[in-house]
């Protein structure tokens, strides 16, 4: 009969039990999941059962994690994401959340750029931990991404992005995410990257502060290979601080636009 072990199909003799299979293929496994439920006692396996065997605390190999992700995303989708390289300009509220989402889905290569360090006030929305205060954001974020998916390749540029280095820092990207804080910096990055790399998509964000209704944040096409996320008007200001929910909504609009572009679909 055919069963699936850690998402890979394999043949098992009729009458095989869960514990017998474990003793044969992974004697050290101490967590056995059959069709989505942890199994405490031995059971007889049946055709098409899906079994996951894990040893607690052990990090899956690259091949194993890849098989698990490919099964979750379907193999064709996974292969396209794995080939993708995405640049993230700014690793604050938007950039850190975009990076986490893209690492989780297995985008192959991320290029992070930021000049700043983690401050206590960042923790209301940015994907850092309290014990990372004072670290460069690119280093802290890279460490967190490695804990999520050690097989995503992450390059970090710790410094200011200016007109003269933006094309070099992001020379290899398939898609660039604009995730700066300041309006003038956003405009500078958009102008510079679109002039230097007009064929490569850029996804910027504008208008995501405060706690206005979620559905005012949209993704729209705003030019050739250029997409804009946000409500377009809500700037960070007193009474309209940057907060995790809305910044996260905008960041995930950006991440989903990347996903759609890597799969050959229009983001809007």
């Amino acid at each position: 009969m055919r069963i699936f072990l850690n998402e890979e199909p394999r043949e098992a003799a009729a009458g095989t039990t869960l514990f017998a299979l474990r003793d044969e293929v992974r004697p050290g496994a101490d967590l056995l999941i059959v069709n989505g439920f942890p199994a405490a006692v031995d059971v007889q396996l049946a055709e098409d059962d899906r079994i996951v065997m894990i040893r607690r605390g052990e990090i899956p190999s690259a091949d194993e994690l890849e098989a698990l992700m490919a099964a979750r995303h379907t193999p064709g989708v996974h292969a396209r994401l794995k080939r993708g390289t995405v640049g993230i300009a700014g690793c604050g509220g938007l950039g850190s959340a975009v990076a986490v989402a893209l690492a989780r889905i297995g985008v192959g290569r991320l290029i992070l750029a930021d000049f700043d360090v983690v401050e206590p006030s960042n923790l209301n929305r940015q994907q850092f931990f309290v014990d990372q205060i004072g670290l460069p954001k690119v280093d802290a974020l890279k460490a967190n991404l490695v804990r999520i998916n050690p097989y995503v390749k992450v390059a970090a540029f710790y410094g200011r992005l200016e007109r003269d280095n933006i094309p070099q820092v992001f020379a290899l990207v398939d898609v660039l995410i604009e995730a700066f804080d300041g309006a003038e910096q956003k405009a500078m990055l958009v102008e510079t990257f679109r002039a230097a790399c007009p064929e490569r998509p850029l996804i910027a964000a504008s208008g995501l502060a405060g706690h206005a209704a979620s559905n005012t944040i949209v993704t729209r096409r705003a030019g050739r290979n250029f997409y804009l996320v946000g409500d377009g008007t809500t700037a960070a200001a007193p009474g309209q601080g940057l907060m995790a929910p809305r910044v996260g909504i905008a960041a995930h609009h950006q991440a989903n636009a990347v996903l759609r572009l890597l799969l050959g679909e229009e983001p809007e």
């Binding site: 938007l94 309006a183 002039a195 964000a205 208008g207 377009g232 700037a235 960070a236």
Partner: peptide, 25 residues
């Protein structure tokens, strides 16, 4: 490029896409 805003003269039928950014990220 913004250095060319002042030197770029508008003519009938020109098409512009203008995006204004607000702060926050």
């Amino acid at each position: 490029a913004r250095e060319r805003f002042a030197a770029t003269t508008l003519a009938d039928g020109d098409e512009l896409e203008i995006v204004q950014f607000v702060g926050g990220g």
